[in-house]
């Protein structure tokens, strides 16, 4: 087991930031830790890394207890922090060399690792640039390079794509998948569900300091009643009998938003046919029709009663 956290409790005065938080991460997986801002993701990470004191619980990394002076464990951990953590006075190369040097003392080995890290994040053309001269996306890539240059076995990325443009975000996500393919176990925290869905092999959803659901993307979606979202564009919605639609079998909810009829139905086949039949009987003309599977937001909404996004 790469990480094994049991019954972790962290309080800030009266506020419980982590409420008997449990987490087990297997070697080679990408675990997405998903939750709204303030759900306790970063606090959990900081406790796992022995940066933060906690009130109760145990934390094992690589099957050994984690502590601030467990240097043999820290050597195999890489962290990419939410805030960009680089020195403004050092160039891209120097920053990566410095942070890699905190782990690797041999100069030749370090030189090779730094070159690989620069290559990995695609900053070859910016080696002599100072951080202030880099765009937001490039700066995030530098932040990642500083965290992974020493080739750690466990990489923790805490919201690495905050305030990053879509193109850079895709580059970062592809890079994370590459790291995983190279053998690293990854914990990825985010409040962007699309990102987590894209890269995580397993997802843990956090709220109020505890994990409320955990599993693969498909497993999580199966946990909820909602199996499908059906959207129909109605050309004459004023004639619609909404109660009639809602009363159909397998329909969880139906609501009319302007010309859009939005229906949530249970998982199952042929949900659409009775709806179309009903609309036809009511002589309602239909424009576009599309159906989509539930999202992680639906999972979160159904479990907690609130939206995942802020």
């Amino acid at each position: 087991m790469v990480i094994n956290v049991k019954n972790l409790v962290k309080r800030y005065g009266d506020l419980i930031a982590l409420d008997h938080f449990n987490l087990a991460v297997q070697e080679g997986e990408v675990l997405g830790l998903l939750g709204p801002n303030g759900s306790g993701k970063t606090t959990a990470i900081n406790c796992i890394l022995s940066l933060l004191k906690y009130d109760k619980g145990t934390i094992d990394i690589f099957d050994q207890p984690m502590s601030p002076d467990a240097y043999h464990l820290k050597r195999d951990i890489g962290i990419v922090m939410q805030n960009v953590a680089v020195f403004d006075e050092l160039t891209v190369y120097e920053n990566i060399d410095y942070f890699c040097g905190l782990y690797i003392s041999d100069k030749q080995t370090r030189k090779k690792l730094v070159a690989e890290a620069i290559d990995f994040v695609g900053l070859n053309d910016f080696k002599k640039f100072y951080p202030k001269k880099l765009s937001g996306g490039l700066l995030r890539r530098l932040n990642i390079a500083c965290g992974i240059a020493h080739k750690p076995k466990l990489i923790i990325l805490d919201e690495p794509t905050v305030a990053v443009d879509p193109q850079s975000r895709n580059n970062i996500l592809e890079g994370i998948q590459k790291l995983n393919q190279q053998g690293a176990t990854i914990i990825y925290t985010s409040h962007y569900m699309e990102e987590v869905e894209q890269i995580a092999s397993r997802i843990a959803i956090m709220d109020k300091g505890k994990i409320i659901a955990m599993g693969t993307n498909e497993e999580l979606k199966k946990m909820i009643k909602s199996g499908e979202h059906i959207n129909l564009e109605l050309l004459n919605p004023e004639d619609l009998d909404l109660a009639g639609i809602s009363a159909l079998p397998h329909i969880i909810s139906a609501e009319l938003r302007d010309h859009q009829l939005v229906i949530k139905s249970e998982r199952g086949k042929n949900n659409l046919i009775p709806i179309l039949d009903t609309l036809k009987a009511e002589q309602i003309a239909i424009g576009k029709i599309y159906s989509e599977p539930p999202t992680l937001n639906d999972v979160f909404l159904e479990i907690t009663g609130k939206e995942l996004r802020d």
Binding site: K74, M81, V86, F99, Y103
Partner: peptide, 19 residues
Amino acid sequence: VAIQADLSAVGARINLAPT
């Protein structure tokens, strides 16, 4: 500031290193 995890992000990074 450069070495304290509660004062700077680089401080946090240094505190996480095996040094």
